[in-house]
Amino acid sequence: MENLTLVEPAAQLSIWALFWQAGWVVKLVMIGLLVASVWTWAIIVDKLISYGRMRSALNRFEQVFWSGQSLEELYRTLSDRKTTGMASIFIAAMREWKKSFEKGAKSALALQTRIDKAMDLALSREMERMESRLGFLATIGSAAPFIGLFGTVVGIMTSFQAIAGSKSTNLAVVAPGIAEALLATAIGLLAAIPAVIAYNKLSTDASKLASRMEGFADEFSAILSRQIDEKVPQRA
């Protein structure tokens, strides 16, 4: 108890001073929350950019795909490029198609199944890439307030112990410690609120893009199935 000393209340209430006056547990909580906040915003910015790119890429691909260009030609131009979204689904399907025909497919049904599988795989890879790190936002959104609260509780505990040590009930003695402790909750909320909002928005965006790609995959599957029907019986 003797070691607990109360800070001078006067002119020590700036945010920086509050941070430095806090105990090491509270400081750790604050720093952790600050890092989490930084990472949250990094994810938010990154996702917003990548989703925007993905959307424009989908639009461009759809435009090219439905322009009546030959699929073989499209495949040739895209195969040597790094592809994302619909293009990668298209490439995966075309690759499987090519392989099957090069080796001489025996069964139309088996070919159809293989192509669908390849497209599903490509789609799930794309989805995984898109939704990566969104879980972190959800975690921060739900856990940050609690972490901040933990810091506050510890800070208030310490401050009350110090008050007990100083044997004074003056509000001027109590207030700085509590203000300092509450800073932890404030930072927790500061990190959590954008995380929750961003998570909701980004996950909605991701599911929209995913449904667009699924739609494309189904359509392309139907087109290929028609092609298989046209080609396989002739050969069989």
Partner: peptide, 12 residues
């Protein structure tokens, strides 16, 4: 991700 991180750090 780099862009996002730098943006976030600068923002904070």
């Amino acid at each position: 991700m780099k862009a996002g991180l730098t943006t976030s750090v600068v923002l904070h």
